[in-house]
């Protein structure tokens, strides 16, 4: 777990690396209810002008949630996540989720912790940031 008192602006979060497969996209489609065919039907995706099936945007947002909650620990409350999808990502290629502390603001009662603002993003193996985002998390003291 991460304590508010132990972190500093500029600190980076431990990197979360994912190895998405088409199988995982099918699994995510079933678990989320998003059955748009561009995520698992290659001829459909190609006919729509894509190079092949692509990752769900919300799968990448879910990984950003995992990045933030696993860093903050079980006593952190994730208040806000924003993700902008700037590029398509395909299965078979590793995807890295990263984050950095932008600011920290103690609660009025500092013994109860504080609020941390993060810059978060997802990048492919060529370091292209295809997902840009931010997060706000409540951390314990």
């Amino acid at each position: 777990m991460t304590r508010f008192s132990e972190i500093n602006v500029g600190d980076e979060l431990p990197v979360l690396t994912k190895h998405p497969t088409t199988r995982q996209l099918v699994q995510y489609a079933g678990a989320s209810g998003d059955f748009y065919e561009i995520h698992y039907d290659r001829p459909f995706a190609e006919a729509a002008g894509l190079p092949g099936v692509i990752l769900h945007g919300l799968l990448k947002a879910g990984w950003l949630g995992e990045l933030v909650q696993s860093w903050g620990g079980p006593n952190a409350f994730v208040r806000h996540i924003e993700a902008s999808y700037r590029g398509i990502d395909q299965p078979g290629r590793p995807y890295h989720l990263k984050g950095k502390i932008v600011s920290k603001q103690p609660n009025t009662e500092p013994s109860s912790g504080g609020i941390v603002e993060l810059e978060i993003w997802g990048e492919d193996e060529e370091q292209h940031r295809t997902t840009l985002g931010s997060a706000r998390v409540e951390l314990e003291a």
Binding site: Y36, A48, H56, R79, H80, I81, E82, S84, Y85
Partner: peptide, 16 residues
């Protein structure tokens, strides 16, 4: 258009 893409998602949570 002929295809839908997801441009972005944003959430504010107030309680789990």
């Amino acid at each position: 258009g002929r295809i839908n893409l997801n441009g972005g998602s944003s959430y504010d949570w107030y309680r789990p």
